[in-house]
Write a protein that binds this DNA or RNA. Structure first.
Lengths: 125, 125
DNA sequence: TTTACATATTCCCATATGGGAATATATTTA
DNA sequence: TAAATATATTCCCATATGGGAATATGTAAA
């Protein structure tokens, strides 16, 4: 199987700097028409539209027809997945001590529950 | 300009499901040798090594030579950027009411300050 | 040094991108 | 209906991917 289609996943959608910028703009300025984004970003309209398309497909933005304009607004909840995912590692860059402690606890817990599916590297654990 | 090299950016690094899985595994199980990851993930070794390569290049993981093994461990701080970025939108998926209110205020404010670079849709604002 | 093991690298391929240019598709307005 | 305006879509291209297969590299054991 070749590469996984990137346009299916929120993580991929926000992997593109321009798309992240769009998200930022919509978050800060509220709903915006394509034209506004085009001006602000200084990119050719088709390019902007295409990025919007990706974000739309993933659900990070939603469109609203308003006359001949298409007003896009952010669907922030869709970003929650990313937030939650990264947040899970928050502790790991927090206080060194807490971190070590938590890790130990967690490891112990899991060790107890299910014998890790991985053969631990023989020699030195 | 064609596509931007994906392997240069943390956002891109974690855009790949397998790579996210690696991060999860390292976070949960602590440092792991390539072999362990290979077994756990059920992927051919070269594939795993390549993903590790990407994560390494971006700094999300670090290697440690241990005999003939290469033990990888997570450099969680590198994920902080992502965390911070998404966290900025946290309020937007919080309380519905607050959100709407905030947005409205914000919009009003900006509308007043600078007449949006976009010609506002004449008819129904 | 030869052999075995662990991992990285290289080459190849099908596909997916991002952007440019041109064009199609609404939707108003004249 | 014929402009004009705002956006989306299509085609093309150079490049970047992810994975498969084979091979190189490094390191320990015989």
């Amino acid at each position: 199987m070749p590469r996984a289609p990137t346009t299916t996943d929120v993580f991929n959608a926000i992997a593109e700097p321009r798309r992240r910028q769009i998200v930022e703009l919509l978050a800060r300025q509220g709903a915006l028409a394509v034209g506004a984004l085009v001006i602000t970003m200084g990119l050719p309209q088709p390019v902007v539209s295409k990025h919007l398309g990706v974000l739309r497909k993933v659900g990070v933005v939603a469109v609203l027809k308003q006359g001949k304009q298409r007003v896009y607004n952010l669907e922030a909840e869709k970003l929650k997945i990313v937030h939650d995912w990264v947040k899970a590692f928050e502790e790991l860059w927090g206080h060194q001590l807490d971190r070590i402690k938590e890790r130990a606890e967690r490891r112990a817990r899991e060790q107890a529950e299910s014998p890790t599916p991985v053969k631990p590297p023989k020699g030195q654990a």
